[in-house]
Structure formats: structure tokens, C-alpha cells
């Protein structure tokens, strides 16, 4: 399996606990990444379109708020599985890095 791009990983993570609309995903991704990743709308919708084509997410419902359309997206079972696998992979890598730093007498605690 090829490593997932960070933006993709963060978008899927934003959807992990429930359906979100576009603007919700942007603010959520910003929060998850500690303010480091700010998705632009163009980039976000390119990613959403690809994730939809790959059947990792599906549109959930639509709402109209202040005369503006909000479409919510949620993970499909395939999306959930893929995100879980990627998270486990990243965790394994991070754990290995920390372990080795420890062995080398590094400063990791």
C-alpha cells in the first residue's frame, strides 16, 4: 500500500467521528494539525472528489444555512478501514522512531 498524503489522512480523520461539511472539514483539519495545515477550498474539493471516486467517502445529507448549500460527507466502510490501517502504520513508525531514540540515549521521553 502506498503511503497516504497528509492532507488525505487529515480529511479522513476529520470525518472519522461523523459527517462534516466542507467548511467544517477545513476548520477541523486546522485544529487536528495544530494550525499547521490550512486547506484551501480548491484543494479540499479536489481531494474530496478523488476520495469519492475511490469510494472512501460518500455525500451524507444537504442543508441550507443562510441561503447557502452545505453538503455533508461521511466515511464509507472502505474509508474507515483504510484510515485505521494508515493510522496503525503511522503509529508503528512513530513508536519505532521513539524506541530507537531512547536506545541511543536520546532526549525522547
Amino acid at each position: 500500500m502506498r503511503a497516504m498524503q497528509e492532507a488525505t489522512f487529515l480529511i479522513l480523520t476529520a470525518l472519522a467521528s461523523g459527517a462534516q461539511h466542507g467548511y467544517g472539514i477545513i476548520t477541523d483539519v486546522q485544529e487536528i494539525s495544530g494550525g499547521r495545515v490550512r486547506l484551501r477550498p480548491g484543494t479540499l474539493y479536489t481531494a474530496l472528489d478523488r476520495l469519492r471516486a475511490d469510494e472512501l467517502i460518500v455525500p451524507d445529507r444537504e442543508e441550507v444555512v443562510d441561503g447557502r448549500l452545505r453538503r455533508y460527507y461521511r466515511l464509507t466502510p472502505a474509508g474507515t478501514t483504510l484510515l485505521a490501517a494508515e493510522a496503525a502504520r503511522l503509529q508503528a513508525h512513530a513508536a519505532a522512531a521513539l524506541r530507537r531514540l531512547d536506545l541511543a540515549g536520546g532526549t525522547a521521553t
Binding site: H21, G22, Y45
Partner: peptide, 13 residues
């Protein structure tokens, strides 16, 4: 399909 939705996000950002 997505125009109104993207516009909403753009205006919110």
C-alpha cells in the same frame, strides 16, 4: 454539482 457548495465554503473562509 459542487458549485454552490464550494461557493459557500469560499465565502465562509
Amino acid at each position: 454539482e459542487h458549485g454552490p457548495e464550494i461557493l459557500a465554503v469560499l465565502m465562509a473562509c
